[in-house]
Design a protein around this nucleic acid. Structure first.
Ligand SMILES: NC(=O)c1ccc[n+]([C@@H]2O[C@H](COP(=O)([O-])OP(=O)(O)OC[C@H]3O[C@@H](n4cnc5c(N)ncnc54)[C@H](O)[C@@H]3O)[C@@H](O)[C@H]2O)c1
Ligand SMILES: NC(=O)c1ccc[n+]([C@@H]2O[C@H](COP(=O)([O-])OP(=O)(O)OC[C@H]3O[C@@H](n4cnc5c(N)ncnc54)[C@H](O)[C@@H]3O)[C@@H](O)[C@H]2O)c1
Lengths: 256, 256
DNA sequence: CGCGATTTGTGCACGTCTTCACAAGCGCCT
DNA sequence: AGGCGCTTGTGAAGACGTGCACAAATCGCG
């Protein structure tokens, strides 16, 4: 992944392409397709059918075809999609042709883990700065990066052309940090703190909340339990028993 | 119209198995309401209007009312919702009246952070076991819990009545771990590894993928940039101008 | 050169989610 | 008691997302 030509392109031409207006649901799935495609490429596949790719990504094949058709994608009927080309296309649409610089604010428990995560680098991002408010943490070196004080954010933003801010501070500080990020021009924020952030229009915020995920699972556990407590139909019972391992396909995904 | 069973009876008399069949979208928001409610309760509020709660949770008030109406919840017209009662109701529906035991598999970079996270405990869960395949990690104590070998999973599952499994291993090991979890009766899995898991029907899997979140943000960045850029020729329209954007006041506006 | 096998791209119908708008219910004040 | 303002709960409409089913396109082969 060092070359990137064919930016977009059906119309080819040189000018900046009109970015297709993708449905949110599609945008949320493209990264999944991209990951699956990279796996396929590594495995030596040059082309892949919608059936194959959809299986690898855990979605319905018709949905996948529709998603790809939205970005004016090129598949070949009777053959499938060219893996390398599709990777290029998706990376272009997602804006991954340039490696975006990420600033991570809050280098605590979670922040440390994130700072040391190489999944960022391999998927189009560069952690360009670590920031914290705690003087005792400032100066610490993690993974080759030195933690700087959050007050240096304005300088750092310019130095590193920060495009995305990640908030990993306690909830109480999150809004303040978000304000600071917005103030230096950041228009995309990934928030790990369990709280709602207020930001001006034009700024995108995505939230990751662990406890919420668990609580959703808890609901389904609760529901499953309340169902097994009733059924009278003699069917194939099974409750807590392991039984056989008939792991088959099928999804179980829910969008954010 | 029809009489609803008595609302979440924490005391659980004898039979209240019929759990309302909530829309998935609603289920995903309930935890958010719950968090907001706890904040309100801590702040001393005894009641809250749908307007107030929806603002705190970052959603539309009509949506909130419809969500709550689904779980047969009773608010009082002209007054609002009783905060304490609503908390009870939502916790009941989400199955949080019992503290569910969580097994965390993969105590590496991320696993360490999760193990030390107190947001679990305060939101209805108990990390009951830490498991890893690396012998050199087994025996390590984190936050009062000793890391055990993943092969002990069957024993641990019984000892601790594990209800939910969290996978924080590399992607290559995730499917295997999922199979092991399923084999010991776990029917809810939270997966941090960037891969698709195959599980039998009846098992719920939720995935958290950091890179995907960033890539979605990247798309919107790309889109925003392509909109603001017009005449300038080619090249990436890097926007590193902090002073450019409005200073912004930071109130209102929510990212969806 | 044409044919059959294959696979894409999409029209359409259906289900889910969101949002508006408003009647009905509730408490309070006079 | 009656009226008034406030807030819930919900009908209806529309936006959005999903998946089937099939025509159109393409390849390989005889
Ligand atoms: N640890 C986890 O596994 C985990 C999981 C999910 C969510 N979270 C959430 O992520 C956030 C961080 O969790 P954590 O466990 O790392 O907490 P932590 O207390 O270990 O780390 C927080 C860090 O933020 C820094 N900080 C505080 N105020 C700041 C400010 N104004 N500017 C910059 N830095 C500031 C602190 O100095 C500290 O280093 C919390 O909101 C938590 O709820 C954590
Ligand atoms: N570190 C992060 O911030 C971060 C962020 C997002 C996603 N992730 C994902 O989370 C997962 C873990 O990341 P990490 O940085 O902690 O990796 P890590 O290598 O630090 O830790 C992985 C741990 O899993 C253990 N393990 C390996 N195979 C196992 C098995 N079969 N059974 C039990 N344990 C096993 C290893 O011994 C190791 O302790 C990865 O899939 C990663 O992509 C990590």
């Amino acid at each position: 992944m060092s070359q990137h030509r064919h930016p977009g392109a059906p119309g080819s031409a040189g000018a900046v392409p009109a970015l297709p207006d993708l449905p949110e649901a599609t945008v949320a799935r493209l990264p999944e397709y991209l990951r699956a495609l990279h796996n396929l490429a590594d495995a030596g596949h040059e082309t892949v059918s919608s059936e194959g790719l959809s299986a690898a990504a855990g979605v319905n094949s018709a949905k996948l075809r529709k998603d790809l058709s939205h970005l004016g994608s090129y598949g070949t009927r009777g053959v499938g999609y060219d893996v390398a080309l599709l990777i290029e296309q998706i990376e272009y649409v997602l804006g991954l042709t340039q490696r975006r610089a990420v600033a991570l604010v809050g280098v605590g428990n979670l922040g440390h883990a994130l700072a040391g995560y190489d999944g960022f680098a391999s998927r189009g991002f560069r952690i360009a700065a670590l920031l914290d408010a705690d003087p005792s943490r400032v100066g610490e070196e993690i993974n080759g990066l030195v933690v700087r004080h959050v007050d240096e954010l304005p300088a750092v933003a310019v130095e590193e052309s920060i495009a995305i801010g990640v908030i990993a501070t306690p909830a109480a500080a999150a809004q303040r940090v978000a304000d600071q990020l917005v103030a230096v021009g950041v228009t995309s924020i990934l928030n790990f703190a369990p709280c709602v952030l207020s930001v001006p229009e034009g700024v995108d915020v995505r939230k990751v909340d662990l406890a919420i995920e668990l609580q959703i699972l808890s609901f389904h556990e609760h529901r499953k339990a309340s169902l097994t407590a009733l059924p009278a139909t003699g069917g194939s019972a099974l409750t807590a028993l392991p039984g056989g391992l008939a792991a088959t396909d099928t999804q179980e995904a829910i969008g954010t």
